[in-house]
Deep mutational scan, measured.
Amino acid sequence: GIQEIVAMSPELDTYSITKRVKEVLTDNNLGQRLFGESILGLTQGSVSDLLSRPKPWHKLSLKGREPFVRMQLWLNDPHNVEKLRDMKK
């Protein structure tokens, strides 16, 4: 599951990941809330907090790293936007 992926993950640049996620969401007119609930399993508040103030990787616990790994996996998925759009319906 995701825990193994997080444990094996190389250090991620949390700042550039969140910046990229925000760009993709904005460009495709997708909400942070939808993204947070569907992709990260987080509430709106947690998501906007994460996206606006990402902590550096080395300061995060494994649990804290999980959303960033999920974001990275989502960014790597060529169908990420379509999938999210489908969830919106």
Rank of each mutant, 00 (worst) to 15 (best):
V81T: 07
E37Q: 07
P78D: 07
E4M: 06
L25S: 01
R65F: 01
L84I: 08
S48M: 11
V69G: 01
M71Y: 00
L51E: 04
I17G: 02
Q32R: 08
S46I: 12
L30I: 11
T26K: 13
T14E: 00
Q44F: 12
D49Q: 14
L62P: 15
H79E: 13
E23L: 08
P56W: 05
N80G: 13
F35P: 00
L73S: 09
S38F: 07
K89Y: 09
L84H: 02
H58D: 09
L62R: 10
E82C: 08
M8T: 11
P56Q: 14
D13C: 06
Q72E: 09
R85V: 12
I5Y: 09
E11A: 12
K88W: 04
Y15P: 05
L51G: 01
P10F: 04
R85I: 14
R20G: 04
L51Q: 01
A7Y: 07
S48A: 13
K63F: 13
W74E: 01
E11L: 04
W74M: 00
M87F: 10
E82D: 12
V21A: 02
W74F: 12
V21H: 00
Q72D: 10
S61V: 02
I39T: 03
M8Y: 10
V21G: 00
E82T: 12
K89D: 13
K89E: 10
K22V: 11
L62E: 13
V24N: 02
E82H: 11
H79T: 13
S9Y: 10
L25D: 03
D49P: 09
A7L: 08
N80D: 00
K88G: 09
L34I: 09
V24Q: 05
K59A: 14
P54I: 03
P54F: 01
K59I: 08
I2N: 12
W57K: 02
Q44V: 11
V6W: 04
T26Y: 12
K59F: 05
E23P: 01
L84K: 02
G36C: 14
K83V: 09
H79A: 14
I17R: 03
D49M: 15
N80W: 04
T18E: 01
E82P: 10
V47Y: 04
D49W: 07
P10R: 08
E4A: 11
G36M: 09
E37P: 00
P10A: 09
K89T: 10
L34T: 09
I39Y: 06
L75W: 01
V24A: 08
R70P: 03
R65H: 04
S46W: 05
S46E: 08
I39A: 02
E37K: 04
D13E: 04
V24P: 00
I2C: 09
S9I: 07
L12C: 03
F68P: 00
P78V: 10
R20H: 07
P67V: 06
M71F: 03
N80F: 04
L40F: 04
L73C: 13
T43P: 15
M8K: 13
Q72M: 15
N80R: 12
R65T: 00
V6M: 09
T43C: 14
T43W: 04
R70W: 02
